[in-house]
């Protein structure tokens, strides 16, 4: 057994896995009503049509939050082809994904339409080898682990 949580992978852990509460409140009001329902449908299609989807702040090339950076780096380390959604660009999805996943923080990783977790969970599953199983079970091509 070598599940050592404090082991050697050194990815940035600075930054915020933000719950995005404050400025969020205003957005919430805007996206409530019919629009909120549409967003959930769009997200549902997005996570179903793409094998691996990462909802994040910023882009994999230019992440705007340490947690999102770490999530994107983990996926890049596996060489998986993933669809990244920048919730800072697509503002309606910022609340939408929280509602869709019933998960309050961003980033969120979806594989085969299922929520895998945020960056802490991704890191844990990366260390334990479980992330590889998630890709394999969903029939996702990955290069390394």
């Amino acid at each position: 057994m070598s599940e050592d949580d404090s082991n050697s992978i050194s990815l940035p852990i600075v930054g915020d896995e933000e719950t995005g509460d404050q400025e969020q409140q205003e957005e919430q009001e805007r996206t409530e009503g019919d629009e909120a329902g549409d967003v959930l449908e769009v997200i549902d299609r997005e996570v179903t049509d793409n094998g691996v989807v990462l909802y994040m702040k910023g882009t994999p090339e230019q992440p705007m939050c340490g947690f999102s950076a770490r999530a994107a780096q983990i996926l890049q380390a596996y060489g998986v082809d993933f669809h990244a959604v920048n919730v800072l660009d697509e503002e309606d999805k910022r609340d939408g994904i929280k509602e869709y996943g019933d998960w309050k923080t961003i980033p969120q990783l979806y594989v085969g339409g299922e929520l895998v977790g945020g960056s802490d969970i991704m890191m844990k599953m990366h260390e334990s080898g479980q992330l590889e199983d998630v890709f394999a079970d969903a029939g996702i091509d990955y290069a390394a682990g």
Binding site: S2, E3, D16, E18, T19, F67, T105, D120
Partner: peptide, 20 residues
Amino acid sequence: LDGPIHALTLETKTPDATGE
């Protein structure tokens, strides 16, 4: 999480998984 906590790094373990 809707208010006073802005960022949370979470680690969960079972008693069996601790120790190492």
